[in-house]
Design a protein around this nucleic acid. Structure first.
Lengths: 381, 381
DNA sequence: GGTCGTTTCTTCGGTTTCGAAGTATGGTGA
DNA sequence: TCACCATACTTCGAAACCGAAGAAACGACC
């Protein structure tokens, strides 16, 4: 609740939410129009801000058109990183929210944290080079990791997806390798942020469900990521759906992940993990595939019904690699959700629009939210 | 995010959080010490604030002791109301958080909303009279209702506990009967707020579970009640624990409420609803009772394990009439929760300290949070 | 009992922020 | 084409707020 002065509020807001007009800033920050005008004039004079071209897609309505302000490139860049079991992705943007570069590369599953960090650092440098920039230009970095992120230790909890990171102080290690401060966060949480930023920014409570190797969730409350007391919120995959079910890696029986998620789908179809998913996508007409997807959708939908009763989200966004199959999975999921929910009208379920980029772009959004723009000519002593 | 001036911030904070020193206010609100001093001096001069006696239980530490400020009685009173299936409770407090009066009365289950509203209005007037006050002195009222509170309609959703309220515009009806604006909220949510206010105010995310006739939950995030997109969050009782289980009033099978909650306990022990619970409390040694409580605790604990994986609360507080049995229920609950949770160390589970007063006091806390103190001598034109 | 350290509260000059009134810039409809 | 409306931005005097420095009120320690 620390009260910041108008200049800082405006700079942080522009970095976090992207270009906006003076009036929009005033309304969003609870400042007087006149205050914003005065401050903006100063920031423009020093070159921190510029007025965007007026040819933006202005909604056709009465009144003088608003002039968007955006942070210049001199205020810095933000970097988002998404590390998965077998891939790494990096995106670079300026503080006006323009994505300047994106890079991705495979990662050897099960390799050590050191190797993976080196790979990521290489990707970051390449992407920065693509954007004609260097690490010196970066003012904020965020990285997504598959597994519970323990805030107290700033490292990965027991992740079965990245075994090489056990005991590694993830945040510190990455920060040291890059020479920059790094925020770390669970990948499903970042996926939620990504999808929220590019589409459902107005919805009150958003639940993002990532159906990939495992099943994870991210929750956005009041425009902020909800991460729980220790930062490990979002573990949906180990909800027990059948106490007599198959044993799970977590030690319990009948977790959602034993019947749903890409891993379970491939196992039940007798496919290998590598490239198996592409085969599933190509065989959606196959009755065996359809039957498994139907069952998976129902299992997840059933759990989501109870979750919706408890949390009442405004929308459920489904992402992750398996979400790419679309209706064959989402249809049964919606049905099961509606059956389990008590509310008169069930929560809408939509497919994410970012696909496999949701997590990197979410990491980017996270980094932008925490970025403090560099002043072109700081007046501080 | 609307920025308010210091005077309003200070008044609202004192009403919401109770007496505090100048320095504490400055820190909590992000204001300069000098600003708070100036504003407070003005408010004291006009009689809105007074300095509390210094003989408070000051933590023994170095430095000049802080002087708590509190709102005078002239700034108004707050009223909290808790309406249950067969009871109504009312509490009156001043804006310095001193509870001035409490009243309770039985209500005929199943009676009409009109009758119940009349009963509540009578209780409010009696409690106000106890406090030597009248309705004119009240600046904020909040009421808890058992069932999902639909924000869009400001009324009770399909509540099986208060059938007489179906279709009644709860908020408007109550406001009209009292001649005062009234906030309405789910009772488990208010219980969460009550327990949080009197004990766990520092914990990050708090999950309150009310085990009464049914099973409900309230969640506090960032010091604020989380109510979901439509305001109906907290329905824990209809989480499916066994798809082949008993049919539930909600239309599904195997909801938590069919195996847990006071209703299920009494049914399984062959006891009547009225007064049956007292009998259970007196027969805790009876193996049949112990066995049922053990099973109920395990059922709730299992669900809470999954919920804790998803939400990672800092503490789980158990309240409601059935929580009064204590360890015979909480022990098995904790065990099942720990078994279902993936986190290294399980979330602590504690019994609420307010007992059956949790909901009224929560309503009071809710009312206080939304109270705007009356200025003794307002300077506005 | 006096000095020191610590925290709270006050004083005062300078800056930031606000509010009200006015100007700018586009649509809309006679 | 020209008043008229709606929204965005600017100007300027007044009020609110801040920061630094200092006074006040304790406990702790020699």
């Amino acid at each position: 609740m620390a009260r910041a002065d108008a200049t800082e509020l405006i700079l942080r807001r522009l970095a976090a939410a992207g270009p906006a007009s003076r009036t929009a800033l005033a309304r969003g920050l609870g400042l007087a129009d006149s205050t914003v005008s005065t401050v903006v004039a100063g920031l423009m004079a020093e070159g921190t801000l510029v007025q965007a071209d007026a040819d933006t897609e202005t909604a056709v309505r009465a009144g003088r058109p608003a002039l968007d302000l955006r942070l210049t490139r001199a205020t810095g860049l933000a970097v988002g990183i998404d590390l998965g079991k077998s891939h790494a992705r990096v995106a670079v943007a300026d503080l006006a929210h323009a994505v300047l570069a994106e890079r991705a590369a495979p990662v050897v599953p099960g390799s050590s944290a050191q190797e993976q960090i080196a790979r990521v650092v290489g990707l970051v440098d390449t992407a920065l080079a693509d954007a004609d920039a260097g690490r010196d230009d970066v003012v904020s970095v965020a990285m997504g990791l598959p597994g519970p992120v323990d805030r107290a230790r700033d490292s990965l909890g027991d992740s079965t997806v990245l075994p090489g990171w056990r005991g590694v102080p993830a945040r510190a290690a990455m920060a040291a390798a890059l020479g920059l401060d790094v925020h770390i966060e669970n990948d499903a949480n970042l996926g939620a942020l990504g999808e929220w930023t590019r589409g459902h920014g107005t919805t009150d409570a958003v639940l993002y469900v990532k159906i990939a190797t495992g099943v994870g969730a991210g929750l956005i409350v009041d425009g902020e990521l909800f991460t729980g007391a220790r930062g490990t919120a979002g573990e949906l995959g180990h909800t027990v759906v059948d106490p007599q079910g198959l044993p799970c890696t977590c030690g319990n029986r009948g977790c959602l992940e034993t019947v749903a998620g890409a891993g379970a789908v491939l196992r039940r179809l007798g496919l290998v993990e590598d490239g198996g998913l592409e085969e599933v996508l190509g065989r959606l007409e196959d009755p065996a595939v359809a039957s498994v997807l139907d069952e998976v959708g129902r299992a997840i939908g059933g759990v989501l019904g109870s979750v919706c009763n408890l949390l009442d989200p405004g929308v459920v966004i489904v992402g992750g690699t398996l979400a790419g199959v679309g209706e064959p999975l989402l249809g049964p999921l919606r049905e099961a959700l509606a059956a389990g929910a008590i509310a008169r009208d069930a929560v809408p379920v939509v497919e994410g629009v970012l696909g496999e980029r949701a997590e990197v772009l979410g990491a980017l959004a996270y980094a932008l939210r925490r970025a403090l723009p560099r002043r072109a000519a700081s007046t501080r002593p």
